[in-house]
Amino acid sequence: MLEIDGIHSFYGKAHILNDMSFSVARGEVVALLGRNGAGKTTTMKSIMQLVRPRSGSVSFAGTDITGLPAHKVARLGLGYVPEERRIFTDLTILENLEVGRQSPRAQTPSWTIEALFELFPNLEERRNNRGKALSGGEQQMLTIARTLMGNPSLLLLDEPSEGIAPVIVEQMAKTILKFKADGLTVVISEQNLHFAKMVADRAVIIEGGAKKFDGTFQDLEEDPQVRDAYLSI
């Protein structure tokens, strides 16, 4: 479904991703783990081509998307939910959803505004409220709903639990598991190991812009060296 092959990404002079490779199969939920600055967000952005890798390639559903403009990547069915939400605070909830709207595509779950309101009832109540009036949890829901309006076949969730009450994070875990049951492929980046374990099939640990571990959470627990180096508590 998604194939990242030896990408190198930079911010100006800063070399952030250094030969990053991993792949995601259809229907899988993969968690990218690592501290801030390890390269998780840059990996997400490099997949979306918001940061263009200088070398290496990214392919999605068999198409090489390296160097495509981000909007073309999105139109191929990659849905990106950024860190820090980035909702349009001056727009109403309905208008936010309108920005994300794309036509349905084959073999992927299609979303309507009604279906999204069913999934996130809070948003329906406040449909004509501006984004800035929403709480952090509601903003996070809106970000996800907005991306789902584009009917993506693969969802990139960058730190969905950051700054959200544990009780809401638990709900979100259920939502992600529901997406998985619907056949959506999901990549999340996380710092909260507990949350990642709840939703993901597989963990990819990133440090210094490169992959340091790729396997199930069980493998992770059984690998004391990796555990101590990157996750130790």
Binding site: P69, A74, F88, T89, G100
Partner: peptide
């Protein structure tokens, strides 16, 4: 209009509008 909505969204965050499938250029 839809374009107006997109314009206002882009006023706030151009990159995000692009990532949602809108040809922002």
């Amino acid at each position: 209009t839809r374009i107006g909505i997109l314009v206002r969204a882009a006023t706030q965050d151009r990159e995000m509008v692009g990532a949602l499938g809108v040809n922002q250029s």
